[in-house]
Design a binder for these strands. Structure first.
Lengths: 154, 154
DNA sequence: GCGAGATAGTTGAGCGTTCAACCACCGGGG
DNA sequence: CCCCGGTGGTTGAACGCTCAACTATCTCGC
């Protein structure tokens, strides 16, 4: 009944696992070492910096950053301690909160970005051919399209 | 002097990030729900189950599972509490420890495997064409070779 | 208006990971 | 032999994430 993986599929799956794990751990470690922030926090700052007025509703930010609401709430609390983000009440919905990127936060992001981008390039794009980069985009799109529509799978 | 990402590369990177993150979170959640273990522990059990005599030196197990020594040490401590693994002294090196998969541990793995494999198939292989699966293997190999030069090339 | 259910966001406990020490043991050169 | 750098493994604190409540507010049908 179980559709087991044949040896070739096993090899693909394990190599893919090793690659993504090593890649993300490397980038996370570099970011932690050079900019003192985990990658998840970097992503939050990026999305805030791109938003109009550098502010976003908590739930939109969570969506953009691919984070759960709870995770985001904890993270923003931490970023607030650093002085990188502040919270504001939403004027149109009394339940709502806006996360606002502070100037300090923008500066921290600006300081972290070059090193991180360089890391992404070195560890992801440089080892791949242009054709492979294109393939990777299409593969990722297929996976996202499949995973996104229904979150709690079974 | 920073080699920034052009819009196309940004799109690729962000989609890749979203895909791998969603994939791993989904598989982890399913495994946690159905078998009460995180994916990292599953991987440890798998490698132990494939080793001769179902036992491995801590450092070899760490290497195989793509884990740090510290992480593995904590994890094996936890797995020992569950009764899934036990530690033995290494006969040839008094510093060494062997992690041994117990019968209970093997049973837990056997119970978890079908559901997890099904998840991997549904969320990774099913959405991709055979050509894409092949591309993904090659891409992953290139990344691993770059990130971990010690690994024997294929 | 009002009440039921949905939505926004937070909280705290429990868990896994990281990082930097730390101890114990190995192996080779004086 | 003994010392000394390297290796194998563990530990504890700090931290980020998950999950399941929980509060507060909104929305909509009656």
């Amino acid at each position: 009944m179980t559709r087991w993986l044949d040896p070739e599929e096993q090899r693909t799956w394990r190599t893919f696992l090793a690659a993504t794990q090593a890649l993300m751990e490397t980038l996370d470690r570099e970011l932690q070492r050079d900019a003192d922030m985990p990658h998840a926090y970097y992503v939050i700052l990026v999305h805030l910096s791109e938003a109009p007025d550098r502010r976003l509703r908590m739930s939109e930010l969570a969506e953009a950053a691919g984070s759960s609401r709870s995770r985001l709430s904890h993270a923003v609390g931490r970023l607030e301690q650093f002085g990188w983000v502040r919270r504001e009440d939403c004027p149109t919905d009394r339940r709502g909160q806006l996360a606002v990127l502070t100037d300090q936060g923008f500066a921290a992001l600006a300081a972290a970005a070059p090193g991180h981008v360089e890391g992404v390039r070195r560890h992801l794009f440089d080892p791949l051919s242009p054709a492979q980069i294109d393939q990777l985009r299409r593969i990722s799109e297929a996976l996202v399209d499949h995973l996104d529509p229904k979150r709690p799978a079974s």
